[in-house]
Design a protein around this nucleic acid. Structure first.
Lengths: 333, 333
DNA sequence: AAAAGCATTTAAAACGCTTGCATTTTTTTG
DNA sequence: CAAAAAAATGCAAGCGTTTTAAATGCTTTT
């Protein structure tokens, strides 16, 4: 009553050829006489044979599976990247093992290790920061790794991002051009390079160009969540800001609604620009002005880069920056 | 220069025991003398040995991975389920292979087959409907399968859902109680049982109880998307409806914004209740009244059910209905 | 008609681990 | 203390493929 499986051996017997030949036709190896191929194919069809990918993986040392470490699938920013990853993975005949890490360094390491144990051919990592411990794990393994939407200041690891410095600079400058002097910068943990290093730098750069002194009390560090956005509004208001550049869409929509519920007229009394242009930006009322980034493509390009690495092709540049833009919608004048 | 891997054999040699013993300690088999266990563990640690999960899978016929077929990770409804799935999968030491199907029957079958080829120990299927072709594939395989947030009218396959009939009945009744006579029912493809069979039945039931005649022109069939929601507003308005029950949150928020952009006062001039109570419901302005469903738990329970099946435990009831509720927020009076 | 050259095909050795069974060692028992 | 029972360990046969070296057929040459 056991699941009785058809193996390559059964096919070989029925077709009166050797396993090797069956293996060749299954793998599309051209060194097979057309007549033989046809015969084998017929048997495969008749027996409904499906090659066992695990055995294949053991013999060939390739699993056609890549690991994807993601902070949280539920976050639209990351799930958009994930979709791009999966689509090109599928295109190249790979499957993805998806693992949520909650951005927790402990879990990331643990998950990475189980992925490596499962012999994934490569891994795509999304995370808020590359801690030393995870970097050590990366380096220790020979398995190709690329970062998607996640920066590594050292640029030791392949990665796909946008130019966060320039993007935030441009967003901030837009707000300045609209006449704002006191612009809040609201984002996630400043210990994370994307915030503390890149985005903050862009923010300061824009201020400097406009000769506006940098005021640390206008920098708000909070978590990426809707609730946090609502909560931070009072502080932003208290600081006297007339506009804000925000590092995350959920956070931004929280702040936007917080302000709205506080009877603030947006954009007339307060302007804001968010960072990711996810679905949320258009769902909000008013629709949010935003830095635009090709989320899907970041994932797609990261996966494409990974395929090249897995294929041992040499790659010109493993630190890829995709173009960004700015859309002005209802939250800017 | 090849990735030189440490195998169980190396460990056995270094610890001067047999492979079998090493295998036993790795798998926590109790039939090992503590002293031996300690010795082996030390060598494992020293050599930094990591068991090869592929070889393990081949030998044991268990891969500790499950396949998850999802229409689109980018959809908050499904990604919420996925998160629940992954969390309990992790809890039970499984990993998930996540594959997007776009709800396309062709792709579903194709993906299911590659998952089976990869010898997953089970699969969780999310989809808008169980077509005959996919059901055939399900039945053909001995691999346990459970549906999450997806109905199969035949109840042949394990599944976890809420009682959609009762939920929509209650939502519609709420609107009726508020004095509405012309209530639109806006949802996805009516060929899908969840819409055409369950939800529609609930809608009709509520009308019947209130002795309101069923009017097919108040039923709107569209796709689950924000744009579709915006687009359908004009039709809903033209039909003279004063309220709507909506089958999907993105769709609902689209309709809500469509009405809002049309200067309709919600909830005074138009009421609506949506179905999934995802993050979007609270993000919308006004916040949306909704059927509440434990999205995360649906995924979690589905995965738990699957672990039982994979474990060959017998299960009392494989068609599980989780409790739902109704929250009234800003889109109802 | 034998030799050469190719195109096909086969045999069998991995791949790294689990597991049933046999064997050895240790503990218990009378 | 010997015998019986229990515990620990080792042996070796798989698991279902891929892959390399070797063998076999066919054609073509000469």
């Amino acid at each position: 009553m056991d699941k009785q499986t058809i193996t390559i051996y059964d096919v070989a017997r029925e077709a009166s050829v050797s396993m090797a030949t069956v293996s060749r036709v299954v793998n599309g190896n051209p060194n097979v006489k057309p007549a033989t191929r046809k015969k084998v194919l017929e048997v495969i069809d008749r027996l409904d044979y499906r090659p066992n990918a695990v055995a294949r993986g053991l013999a060939s040392k390739k699993t056609t599976t890549v690991g994807v470490i993601i902070p949280d699938v539920t976050n639209i920013y990351f799930s958009s990247l994930a979709r791009g990853i999966d689509d090109v993975a599928t295109m190249y005949k790979y499957n993805i093992i998806l693992a949520n890490s909650d951005g927790n360094s402990q879990k990331e390491i643990q998950v990475l290790n189980t992925l490596l144990a499962k012999q994934v051919d490569g891994v795509i990592f999304m995370g808020h920061q590359i801690t030393d411990s995870i970097r050590t794990e990366f380096m220790r393994s020979k398995t190709p790794i690329v970062l998607a939407g996640s920066v590594d200041p050292d640029e030791q690891i392949g990665s796909v991002n946008i130019d966060y410095v320039a993007a935030i600079d441009e967003a901030t400058s837009t707000l300045i051009r609209h006449g704002n002097k006191k612009i809040a910068f609201v984002t996630g943990n400043l210990n994370q390079p994307i915030n503390g290093t890149y985005r903050l730098k862009g923010y300061k750069k824009a201020l400097a160009k406009a000769k506006i002194p940098y005021d640390p009390s206008l920098v708000f560090e909070t978590e990426y969540s809707y609730k946090a956005g609502e909560a931070v509004w009072d502080r932003v208001k208290a600081a006297g800001a007339t506009a804000a550049v925000i590092g995350d869409d959920e956070l931004a929509i929280g702040l936007l609604n917080g302000a709205g519920d506080d009877e603030i007229n947006i954009p007339n009394d307060f302007e804001l620009i968010t960072s990711n242009d996810s679905k949320l930006a258009e769902i909000a009322r008013p629709k949010m002005s935003s830095i635009t980034q090709p989320l899907y493509d970041i994932g797609a390009v990261a996966m494409r880069l990974l395929t090249k690495m897995m294929n041992k092709e040499d790659i010109a540049n493993q630190t890829i920056l995709l173009p960004y833009g700015i859309v002005e919608r209802g939250t800017t004048k």
